[in-house]
Design a binder for these strands. Structure first.
Lengths: 150, 150
DNA sequence: TTGATACTGAGACTTAGTCTCATATTCAAG
DNA sequence: CTTGAATATGAGACTAAGTCTCAGTATCAA
């Protein structure tokens, strides 16, 4: 099976782009990163390897375009990405208090979604399905120590 | 039935906040706006009425909190809001080419979503469900004049 | 009417991201 | 190997969207 690195090489070659050291650093770091990350975290991680902010963002765009990475959440002006390798398609629950992200898979939702697109003659490229609320732990916390009244 | 203005007044009173002229201007403009808008459009519209950017954003937060407005889409770092009055809950298809927004209602998706939350013991507050792709018109346009090869 | 409380605009500040440009790397052809 | 045209790079200027501060102003309950 094709490794992410091989896939990236193929993608670059096919677009007549070059396989450079900074690009490889971004690839490695992005795929090794904790499962969900924001661009600026990547920028911070890569400063150690002397990769500039500009290059991180430029490479991020390539990884997105090549399908190795996916933007999965966007809240409050923050974009969150995750590597595509391995896991089946899924969506996310986002805890508004602790930021925890829970992944869930639901083929029936996907199927209904596709039916909607067919109905509108809409060619789907991607989708963002995120549910915001409070995870079990934070619900409990709030029950014990509710925000004190103004 | 309660008008948006009455709802807003009640909301403010209950929080010991004041009903001011700038706030009313923001309310009116936000509700009268084209169905979907970005904060900066509101800022521009309200400059004529001498309402500052800071006040627009501050009031936007209140309108969101009071439920009169809802954030419905977030793409590319742009937040899009819409007034809540009138329409039943719905989600959105967003055309990546022309920016067109199509609304769709699908109770079965909503039901499945709630089931997911129950399974994870997650207290849902809101959700963002947007499908990105190409609308009928833009698909046709691209078929006629495809992007020329590099 | 009044004064405590809350609100306001101006503009400084922040954060995330993009752009430019002079210099450095890559890689296909020789 | 070399080489050189094409592409990539880092530094840092720039932008856009939003937040914050603060001195002066408006609101509203008593």
């Amino acid at each position: 099976m094709e490794t992410p690195r091989q896939a990236f090489e193929a993608f670059l070659r096919q677009k007549h782009l070059k396989l450079t050291q900074p690009r490889l650093s971004v690839l490695d770091t992005a795929l090794a990163a904790r499962r969900h990350f924001e661009p600026e975290e990547l920028v911070a991680d890569l400063r150690a390897k002397a990769v500039s902010r500009a290059t991180v963002y430029r490479t991020l765009a390539l990884l997105l375009e090549s399908g190795l990475l996916k933007e999965v959440i966007e809240t409050n002006g923050h974009r969150i990405y995750e590597p595509m390798h391995g896991l089946p398609h899924h969506d996310h629950l986002v805890c508004l208090e602790c930021g925890k992200i829970i992944e869930f898979v639901n083929p029936r939702i996907e199927a209904l979604q596709e039916a909607v697109c067919r109905r509108f003659d809409f060619r789907i490229v991607s989708h963002l399905h995120q549910i915001m609320g409070y995870c079990r732990k934070c619900q409990r916390k709030n029950a014990v120590a509710p925000r004190r009244p103004a």
